[in-house]
Design a protein around this nucleic acid. Sequence first.
DNA 1: GATGAATGAGCTTTCATTCAT
DNA 2: GATGAATGAAAGCTCATTCAT
Lengths: 191, 191, 191, 191
Amino acid sequence: MARHRDYTKIEQIFESTLKLVLEKGFAGLKMAEVAKEANLATGTVYIYFKDKDDLINQLYLFLKRRKTILFLQGIDQKEDFDLVLKKIWFAYFEVTMQHVNESAFLEQYYRSPFLKSNVKEESKQILKPIYDLLERGVKEGKLHSVNVEILLSQIVGPIHEMIRAYHDGAVEINAETMNQLYQLVMRGIKA
Amino acid sequence: MARHRDYTKIEQIFESTLKLVLEKGFAGLKMAEVAKEANLATGTVYIYFKDKDDLINQLYLFLKRRKTILFLQGIDQKEDFDLVLKKIWFAYFEVTMQHVNESAFLEQYYRSPFLKSNVKEESKQILKPIYDLLERGVKEGKLHSVNVEILLSQIVGPIHEMIRAYHDGAVEINAETMNQLYQLVMRGIKA
Amino acid sequence: MARHRDYTKIEQIFESTLKLVLEKGFAGLKMAEVAKEANLATGTVYIYFKDKDDLINQLYLFLKRRKTILFLQGIDQKEDFDLVLKKIWFAYFEVTMQHVNESAFLEQYYRSPFLKSNVKEESKQILKPIYDLLERGVKEGKLHSVNVEILLSQIVGPIHEMIRAYHDGAVEINAETMNQLYQLVMRGIKA
Amino acid sequence: MARHRDYTKIEQIFESTLKLVLEKGFAGLKMAEVAKEANLATGTVYIYFKDKDDLINQLYLFLKRRKTILFLQGIDQKEDFDLVLKKIWFAYFEVTMQHVNESAFLEQYYRSPFLKSNVKEESKQILKPIYDLLERGVKEGKLHSVNVEILLSQIVGPIHEMIRAYHDGAVEINAETMNQLYQLVMRGIKA
DNA sequence: GATGAATGAGCTTTCATTCAT
DNA sequence: GATGAATGAAAGCTCATTCAT
């Protein structure tokens, strides 16, 4: 559902929506406030998005795509497996950290009934490069031979959990702590 | 004497709320429906809970406490460290799985602005037994000497992630896959 | 509609109702609060009064009667006209002042649609002694020969107005100011 | 451009509110009925008034101002004192009579806890022209030298009282009865 | 009679959506 | 396309009244 009418306005609306959702939560999101925050009239939002539901779903995809593009930048799957895995792990960590807000939104509403199933579907495609890499790792005997999903849980789960702890003020995130976590994780999955 | 306050009504209301939140999401939760589902009049809900906000917060604490009690049942911190760690890991996994709905709710609304900060505070206390255990493990030289939060991320994160994958239909969860994940995780954190 | 069940409880309810009406206004009056203020259960109020409407109307009559009894105390219509008139004028002033709250209630709800017409009817009877006196004054040539209602306006109106000003903090009420007003009023109506 | 705010709607709402308050009393006033009576949607009322309370207070001021403007029309304070006083007295009487409904509302809710104190404050300013006139009368030796408030009670009180009697069907109001009252009042206050 | 928890009709208010300008 | 006033269905919440104890 490509929309080309006025890309800047759409982005303004996305940013405003994200800001308000993070501030006041999803249930507290009001279309009139989104418009105001984006310096637009209420009706204008409805020119670019069919309804509130559409706005949320479009935003979800927008953020997911943006995040994926960011964290795959500079990853060259043809390089040495260990190097690619390291790069991708730190990239995922850094991108998730730097775009905490987006990530919070993505995490928070992943299971929300607001998300249409087709949006969920596209959303899953995004992690495909990681899946591919892990399958390669298993084939090359670099990783323990278990279901790729199990490996993925081990890779992505601790990152999410640590960033959550960071937001609760329970832990600092810096080169050292990131490395420590990386060592633990790799010790676990590497063959 | 009038009929006296019936505190089982509170649990009825909690169950109804949880059911409806999981079905229709948080934004779609209606107080009248909660009451109906619990076979009560709308006003009755307001006898036990100040308002919608209060209901959600109380429910959060209720579920968090219930989950904690469940997964600490039968754990005796005086036993051998490795055994306690194993028991606690599987208990956390099993309880999270068996009470997926509650867990989904807990995960989903942990960061939600609906949660008052004092509720968040109490919520954190609940994981204390695990913290204590991990600290003991580090002291006894059984675990890698890193920040406890980092260890916790490694323990809890993959479980959450795997259950998420399970719900997306991406992986099966059984004795084998659970064990595989356990092996990976332990290989990572054990000294 | 005489009620003899428990006079003290009825009076408690009257006082509580009056207090709450004056504090929060008529629209803000809640039966549950009336009961609480009177240290009774909500249901108890309904033993003594059919419903809210009945309570208001009974209270109105109760206060009106009480006020009337008070201000006619010690008035002997057989005494000299001028003396009776003076006594009655000051008595009305003093009683209205000393029971400002009741009077405020009476004034405020005199026209309220809450008042049943039969209550209004009985209410009017209460001023009868003054009417009678004024008619006597006209007959005896002591007062200007105009409609008794006009004379009454002249007698009661300034008192109400002055007490209102007193409540707005605009004027003090003491022996002197009362006398000044009395002089003005009498100069007006006396033949 | 959207249709622009239509401030005549405010007056529509005022008139509807007044009508309904007088019909059903203040406690019986419903926002939905106000809207319907004004041929508007419920929500529209909330565009122009923050809430029910705000509506009542604004209405009070609106009526008070309108009444004041009306009764000061054609009064020229530079004219002969006796003439101005007479004009102002009859003007107050006539305006109060012709706008009985408004006046009833104003009287009825003057002490109501609904009125915010700032509204009461502004309300008092409105009688200033009469105060000024009475002070002038005292200075010029035309009126008895007593507190202006006492004089005011004497002027305004009987009018209110007589109109009240009129509503109870106790007296007729016409040129003759008005004049009779005027004579009594003036005999009282004139030096 | 007394109690106060329970009821649910009914009210206030909100807010997604529309549409006249 | 852009605007934002207007709409009115729908939701949160209240509170007079009832009734089991």
